[in-house]
Design a protein around this nucleic acid. Sequence first.
DNA 1: GTCTGTAATCTTTTT
DNA 2: GATTACAGAC
Length: 652
Amino acid sequence: MCALVRTFSHDRMFLHGGEDVRLSKESYLENLDPEQLEAVLKSSGRSLIIAGPGSGKTRVITYKLAYLLQCGVKPSNILLVTFTRAAANEMIDRARRVTGQDLEDMTAGTFHHICNTFLRRYASKMGLMNNYTILDQEDSKSLIRHARAKIVGRSGEKKRFPSPSVLRSIFSFSANTLVSIREAVLKRNPSHYNFITQIEEIYKEYTLEKRNQNCVDYDDLLVFAVSLFEQDDRVRQREASRFKWILVDEFQDTNILQLKLVEYLASVHENITVVADDSQSIYSFRGARYENVRDFMSVPNTSVFRIQTNYRSTDSIVNFINAVIPSGSIPKKLRSVKKNGVKPRVVKTWDRYEEAGFVVEEIQKLLNEGFDPREIAILYRSHSHSLEIQVELAKNQMDFRVLSGLKFTETAHIKDIMAFLKIIHNVRDKISWIRVARLFPGIGAKTASRLADHAFEKAKEGASILEIFDSFLSKKSTSLKQLRELLQGISEIPEVAGKIDFILKEFYAEHLRDTYADSKDRQMDVETLIEMASRYSSLERFLTDLTISEDFNNTDHESKLTLTTVHQAKGLEWDVVFILSVNPGDFPSAYALMDGKMDEEERIFYVAVTRARKRLYIINQTLRNYDLSLPTRAADFVERIPSDLAIFDSVL
DNA sequence: GTCTGTAATCTTTTT
DNA sequence: GATTACAGAC
């Protein structure tokens, strides 16, 4: 297909005005450096691009995409898989600008998005109705909580029995690594092994309820998509035929299911390019295995490209980065392009308050120097490490945005509104019924769950909202009547935005006023949600996007500092980066120290350090809240830093 | 049954 | 230090 395969073997000739006139005229390729260019142009068939941090991975994929389009590959024949929806959008935007082509028909997004589109299409094959709802983390936990209560009951046995969150992580780990529940418990939480029979029962109950209520969780999206292709070869053939080209970013963070999926989808045309940096694999807790990179590479005829130049950071920072390459990485040494940088600073403070004080003071200096606040970021291992700094910033009236922590879509008021919509979309969704019913005065846990059970049974018989309420035995309280009217009203309004507006006006605004001190802010959030909804005509699309893509959370940016966990900082970069609380027990986390799992922490630290373009600050504290009798030195990232690569400071 | 106050329980990272 | 389970008042 397209001239690619032919031209590739003959290398640069082609670039310097070889056969393909159309492309050689395009100046955009000149924006790439030789090693990037090679990766873009020469990779066809199966190829793996191992690219270090700051090597312009996004640019490589974007230009590869543009190049394919220029070669005449139709957008509908391309699959682009990225780690976040935002990353896909960014690449598409750039490729659109470069090529001037309309990319509407391209399939792009995260694995979860892509699996969801397959699942909607083939839902019935998998025993689902295509109006299934996707459970987010919290909904999934609620469902597990119910299943848990059913199995463990109210007896004293409950003590030390794994909590819903722990159970969820066990189930999720099992799904994403293709191991049994038994093995998952042994691997992750061996101390819970004596509860194994109950855990297995809860898992059964949870799975059954998900099916009954026509719900899938995040893991199911992947699991179902994989088994769809495994079970039906015709479906696999049909879908794989469509994708003449597949591009996958952040491949080191894929799990075994995602690897399988990619292999299925590439099985017809075998044109697949994956980009990876094994040192940046930081999602093992959700099944990511950087061994995928090795497995992918070990298939015959896979070509491997390496980009080891770092275009992002100054030489001083790159030298520092080279000194903290995680153990177990594929050996690498990054080259820098930007010269005369400032050495990273390692600053010792007393406690988290002093740390916050120092950071704010230093930021003020940087702003005076002329740095743009949008180009300054504060990173930390855990969201809880950010509280003191948030207070300190607020005290000094400095604007900031927080990417970590409670997301817009996770706040109680947004979840309430969503629950109304979810009922309309999938009447069997008990979790939403319970959530909604409890908002009304006089309806508590008991009535709510009786109503949910009733609605569920009636829905199976195909009853309407009105019929569900009419046959609900309980005394016709005013609350129930109001709920009935409300749901009926929502279902009659066609537009998504109109539905939400109706909920707000008829009921929710008042509810907010009665229950929250900050009801004004919350109402404004709901109004934002209406604004978002106005861009959607399909309720299903709206619900899906809101639970599956986080684009909605990264709102305005204007002249603000950024605060975020390292995990959420992946793929981003700033001129100035502060890394907070680099002490054993905080970063690396206490968890990792206990389990001796330092390798992943090293990679997280590596990701953090590599976000900085010009200035890098590493802050730690003398007052350790984690007292180690264990070897602290090995666990202390600061202790490992060679003395000539940073400036060591103390504000004590 | 609902609502409210108090005691116990953890405590990462997220699509 | 916040969430959640539970006991007791209504």
